[in-house]
Amino acid sequence: MHRIFTTSVASVYPLYVAKLERKGRTRAELDEVITWLTGFDREQLAHHLEAGTTFEDFFAAARLNPLAAQITGSVCGVKVQEVEDPLMRRIRYLDKLVDELARGKALDRVLRT
């Protein structure tokens, strides 16, 4: 099992925020990306962050967006579409969406609309 599975989403969330804010993006955009991917509303997302939910439990409770399979490309040299473990693939989807936002991609393109 990967260590990230038992890591709380709340411990990684501020790192996502910091990365995006350095690039001129906002926490609201990050929240929109996360809610799009997971099907959680903002209240549910806030609850998971406050509760210290692990990535494993976070994605177990999520209703993954049907368009998530369109998320392709590499994160840390690994193609997300080739990641075998379903949980790790979902975590990589989130990483990829954050990377796309940080690189200045328009939000509607990041959300595959």
Rank of each mutant, 00 (worst) to 15 (best):
V9R: 03
V9Y: 01
A10L: 03
S11F: 10
S11M: 05
S11R: 12
V12E: 11
V12M: 05
V12I: 14
Y13S: 02
Y13C: 00
P14R: 03
L15E: 14
L15T: 13
L15Q: 13
L15C: 02
L15A: 07
L15M: 09
Y16T: 01
Y16M: 11
Y16E: 08
Y16L: 09
Y16G: 01
L20I: 03
L20Y: 08
L20F: 01
R22C: 06
K23L: 02
K23A: 15
G24L: 03
G24P: 10
G24Q: 08
G24M: 02
R25I: 02
R25L: 02
T26Y: 06
T26L: 05
R27F: 04
A28L: 08
A28T: 12
E29L: 08
E29N: 06
L30M: 04
L30H: 05
D31C: 02
E32F: 00
E32L: 09
E32C: 08
E32V: 02
E32N: 09
I34C: 03
I34V: 14
I34M: 14
T35N: 06
W36K: 00
W36T: 01
W36N: 03
L37G: 05
L37F: 04
T38M: 10
T38W: 09
T38G: 00
G39K: 10
G39D: 11
D41G: 12
D41R: 09
D41A: 09
D41N: 15
R42A: 14
R42W: 00
R42D: 11
E43R: 14
E43W: 10
Q44T: 12
Q44V: 13
Q44E: 15
L45Y: 10
L45T: 08
A46M: 08
H48M: 10
H48C: 12
H48D: 06
G52V: 05
G52F: 11
G52E: 05
G52D: 09
T53Y: 08
T53H: 10
T54F: 09
F55H: 09
F55T: 03
E56C: 06
E56L: 14
E56I: 02
D57N: 15
D57W: 06
D57F: 08
F58N: 06
F58M: 07
F59S: 05
F59Y: 11
F59L: 10
A60G: 07
A60H: 12
A60V: 09
A61N: 13
A61F: 06
A61T: 08
A62R: 10
A62C: 09
A62G: 05
R63V: 13
R63G: 14
R63Q: 15
L64V: 15
N65G: 09
N65Q: 11
N65W: 04
N65P: 12
P66A: 10
L67W: 15
A69S: 15
Q70D: 14
Q70L: 15
Q70M: 14
Q70I: 03
Q70F: 12
Q70S: 14
I71E: 00
T72P: 04
G73H: 06
G73I: 02
G73F: 05
G73C: 09
S74Y: 13
S74I: 06
S74M: 12
C76W: 14
C76T: 12
G77A: 04
G77D: 11
